[in-house]
Design a protein around this nucleic acid. Structure first.
Lengths: 224, 224
DNA sequence: ACCTGAACACCGTTCAAGT
DNA sequence: ACCTGAACACCGTTCAAGT
């Protein structure tokens, strides 16, 4: 085939966009240089001209999706904005479940790359507007950020299990709760005790309650 | 070579043990069936007789390491035991940085496999002993567990960056803080503001302060 | 400057064959 | 029952060659 016309020219953005689509459709195993070259009707060499390697491609896909989630309408109290921001990230991980392992991988390759600072900045600005002592800002922001990723990761895992299993949420929780009620009480008496709560809880609501919990702790903290 | 003698016979445990050693030494890319067969002086077929595939091997390695971290001496108030438990997990991820992406992967493949329930049980028992209303147990335990993994993951990332870069901690934080002070204030005024705190903070101490923050929020929560 | 496509090294997994 | 080791399909990456 001859050189591409201007209209279908490759670019880093088009490649990243296609990568996100493949990841959304089939998870991390859905993105290979074979599937990518097929979708973009090109060869591997063309992609390598725009992107140095697969790791960078995954990093760019992650940054792109997280960046969208961080643009939150700034209307409300800092407390409310933190809730909105956290919920935006939570939902982004639910829409793109591959984000969960991927964020951990990105972090472990370059902890302060491009994603973490932007998330810290977004959350931290609102924390600093809460009126708590400046000496607590960093720790408070860290606590919120860590909680958000932990919770979002677990939820993405549940979402994927639902998708694979083909069951609906209520059914999934009912089965899990029933299984827990059968557990050996010597080893798992706590899980048995809360099986009922698991059956009835709502993930997003519980997630936000966790945010409120941490914000309450932050507000209650004395000058260290 | 003839069949192995009883002394050097393969077993699932020996394979998992070797896998953990390879992972500790070189991260996830250090564990391949080639390196594993070489270390165990055998062929791939032998390993596949004991372990169904690489995913299960990684899951077993994860469960093994997490299991060790969960066996905590039960002496102290519930609050203190939760701190000890959390710190044990935090340190385990620091010693085995591959745990961080791996936990996310395990979670997304089977969210309530074997690792998550055991962690929930360990934390939850102490939460239920705090004296807070039973209706809050599940949410409180979730918040703690999610925070622990998020924080441990970020810390593992930092630890690995240190290992790769060859720098020491103080130098690493100084460089990061200096870089943040140079950032564009329009985009990153919060990061600039806390650069000083970043330079001076201690990871483990900050992690425990986060635990206290959440526990304070839990204790302050009213009956929902 | 941008793209093509064959080729390479490496990986997880299988399986017929041995003891 | 347990292990061997060659073979297979697939993957990320390179690179000489084209326009």
């Amino acid at each position: 085939m001859a050189q591409r016309t201007r209209a279908d020219a490759l670019s880093r953005e088009r490649i990243v966009e296609a990568a996100v689509e493949l990841l959304d459709a089939d998870g991390e195993r859905g993105l290979t240089f074979r599937t990518l070259t097929e979708r973009l009707a090109t060869g591997p060499g063309a992609i390598y001209w725009h992107v140095p390697n697969k790791g960078e491609l995954l990093a760019a896909a992650t940054a792109s999706v997280i960046g969208d989630a961080l643009t939150v309408a700034a209307t409300g109290s800092p407390w409310e904005e933190i809730r909105a921001l956290a919920l935006g990230l939570f939902d982004a991980v639910e829409r793109h479940p591959w984000l969960s392992p991927q964020l951990a991988v990105q972090l472990s390759h370059s902890p302060w790359g491009s994603v973490t600072p932007r998330i810290f900045e977004s959350i931290g600005r609102r924390v600093s507007a809460l009126g708590v002592p400046e000496a607590t800002w960093f720790t408070a922001t860290s606590a919120l950020a860590h909680y958000v990723f932990g919770a979002a990761g677990q939820n993405a895992a549940n979402a994927r299990a639902l998708q694979v299993g083909g069951a609906d949420r209520a059914e999934f929780l009912r089965d899990a709760a029933n299984a827990w009620e059968e557990l050996d009480p010597a080893e798992f008496r706590f899980l048995k005790a809360i099986a009922g709560q698991v059956r009835e809880h709502d993930d997003r609501e519980q997630f936000l309650t966790g945010i409120d919990l941490i914000l309450t702790g932050i507000a209650a903290q004395e000058r260290p």
